[in-house]
Design a protein around this nucleic acid. Structure first.
Lengths: 119, 119
DNA sequence: CCGAATCCGCATTGATACTG
DNA sequence: CAGTATCAATGCGGATTCGG
C-alpha cells in the first residue's frame, strides 16, 4: 500500500485529498454511505463490479483513515454496518461535486450517441 | 487500459467521473492546468514524484478524453504546451472541492502533530 | 525538449475456497 | 452474513534508451 503519492511537506492539497479517496472504490463507497448507514452486502450490491475482497480491502483502508466506522452486531448471522464518521462527512462537498459532474457527463455521453457526429 | 470501472448503463455518476479523473495523476494535472497553460517540463517540475513516462501517459489519456489540448511548436528544441479544453474546465468545481478539502486536511494533520495525543 | 518503445519487478486485483 | 486465505494473473510504473 504505497500511500506516498507526493512527498512535498503538506504539499499539493489535491494530492492530499487523493491520499484519502484515491482508491479504486473509495469515493464510491463514501458516495453510497452519504446516503446512510449500509451493510456489507448492501454495498456489494450497489457496486457489483467490485469484488467482495476488494470491497473489504477498501473498507479497511477507509476505516484506518477514520473516514468510516463499523458496527458489528453479534447476532447469529453476523451483521455489520458501515457509516461515515464526522470526518468522513466532511468529504461530502468533494463527492457531491464528483456526482454532479458525473451526471452532466452521463447526459453528455448519451446525447453524443444520438448525434452520431459524421466528422 | 481498463477504463470500465462500472458497466451499469449511465450508472453511478461518481464512477463516471472516476473514469475521467481516476488516473493516479490526472486530477493533479488538471489542477495545475486550471492555473493556466503549461509546458511539459513545467508540469514535470510541479509533480516531481511523477515520472516523465507517467506524466506522458496520463497526458495522453486526458487528451484522448478531451479534457486537455496540446499545442506543438515545431521550434528547434520542440516546445509543447497543454491546456484545459472547455470540457476540461467543467471539472473545475470537482478539483476545487478536492483542493479545499486537501487544505483543510493538511491543517488538520499538522495540528494533530502538535497535540501528540496520549490516548 | 518532448515523448515513444522496450524491459522488467512489484503491487494490485480476481477467483476460488474456507471460517465464525 | 461478513469476511479471510491463498494462488495466480494482470497491469502499473520505474529505468533506460532511442527518435524527431
Amino acid at each position: 500500500m504505497n500511500r506516498k503519492i507526493y512527498d512535498c511537506q503538506a504539499g499539493c492539497p489535491v494530492e492530499s485529498t487523493l491520499q484519502i479517496i484515491s482508491g479504486k472504490w473509495k469515493s464510491v463507497i463514501v458516495y453510497h454511505l452519504l446516503d446512510g448507514t449500509k451493510r456489507f452486502n448492501d454495498l456489494q450490491k450497489l457496486m457489483s463490479d467490485c469484488s467482495r475482497r476488494m470491497l473489504s480491502l477498501q473498507l479497511k483502508e477507509l476505516l484506518a483513515d477514520g473516514v468510516i466506522s463499523k458496527e458489528v452486531y453479534p447476532t447469529v448471522p453476523v451483521k455489520t454496518t458501515y457509516s461515515l464518521t464526522e470526518f468522513g462527512q466532511t468529504l461530502e462537498p468533494v463527492i457531491a461535486a464528483m456526482e454532479q459532474w458525473g451526471v452532466m457527463y452521463n447526459q453528455l455521453k448519451s446525447s453524443e450517441v444520438k448525434n452520431t457526429q459524421a466528422s
